[in-house]
């Protein structure tokens, strides 16, 4: 059963140094507040997982929380590069970042296998690409029925999955709607689950296309209103595209980035510590 906790308590209880942590969200419902709480609590050596790492991953990487990144597409959508991600891969700053990259379909199916309790999933893909030889979690298998050669991807079972949803009730049942990406699979694949929500409500009303996650597959629910900003939460607030454009300037330079993080995420504690 999910405990309703503060975000700081939930991150403190569920996310440990060295964990494999999936923070999912496909443009919509990105758990930015939770990612920034992980930064504030100074977690280190994390293996971070996401199909589409964006600004909050740039922040986690630039602040030195990540040892490894497992991903499909790492960019600032519609804007350009993730400069902290690039600096880590190209120049090893603030320290070298191991990477394991997949196609979206491949990484998606790793979650599907994890959620399904299977050791691997099968798909048509990877053959003929240089991705095939670059990751240990993709192999070739032969279909026992047709003899066809197909790609197998190893199940992914994160230590912790973190997602954001619109609402939870007081029992910790969670409801999300709109673009839900791979959130359900990432939750069901994980050992531990933290869900941040816009609000805790007395009663969850059924929604067309809504996805309900029962309280007994979740460990902690934390209220984090506005917790996806500058991403968005359908029904609550819109994506702030200007913040994504602005991030390009903030993140390009190491000092500008650190100053911004200190001011906006760490509450000035770095400036005090210097």
């Amino acid at each position: 059963m999910a405990q309703i906790q503060t975000l700081a308590e939930a991150v403190g209880n569920l996310v440990n140094d060295g964990d494999c942590v999936a923070l999912e969200g496909f443009t919509h419902l990105i758990p930015v507040a939770a990612g920034q709480e992980i930064i504030r609590q100074g977690r280190r050596d994390l293996t971070l997982v996401r199909l589409t790492p964006d600004i909050v991953f740039d922040q986690l990487i630039g602040m030195g929380c990540a040892k490894k990144l497992v991903f499909g597409w790492g960019g600032n959508p519609g804007v350009g590069s993730l400069h902290r991600f690039r600096d880590a891969v190209e120049n090893g700053w603030p320290h070298p970042l191991e990477i394991e990259e997949h196609s979206h379909a491949g990484l998606t199916n790793r979650y599907v296998a994890g959620a399904s309790g299977l050791p691997f999933a099968v798909l048509r893909g990877y053959f003929g690409t240089d991705l095939m030889g670059r990751t240990e979690t993709v192999k070739q298998v032969v279909c026992p029925f047709t003899g066809e050669e197909l790609a197998a991807v190893a199940a992914l079972r994160p230590d912790v999955t973190v997602i954001h949803a619109q609402q939870a009730d007081h029992q910790g049942n969670v409801l999300m709607w709109g673009i839900t990406g791979v959130n359900k699979e990432a939750v069901l694949a994980a050992e531990r689950v933290l869900v941040t929500v816009e609000e805790v409500v007395d009663r969850l009303d059924p929604r067309p296309g809504g996805v309900l996650l029962p309280t007994w597959v979740i460990d902690a629910v934390a209220e984090a209103p506005g917790g996806t900003y500058p991403s968005y939460t359908a029904g609550y607030y819109e994506r702030d595209n200007s913040a994504y454009v602005h991030w390009d300037t903030i993140s390009r330079d190491r000092e500008t980035f650190l100053t911004w993080m200190d001011e906006h995420v760490l509450g000035g504690s770095m400036a005090v510590g210097r």
């Binding site: 499909g72 597409w73 891969v89 190209e90 196609s103 979206h104 690409t129």
Partner: peptide, 13 residues
């Protein structure tokens, strides 16, 4: 890499 690009995303499939 001289330039690390975003990666595969949905393109291969």
């Amino acid at each position: 890499p001289a330039v690390r690009l975003p990666g595969a995303g949905g393109a291969p499939e």
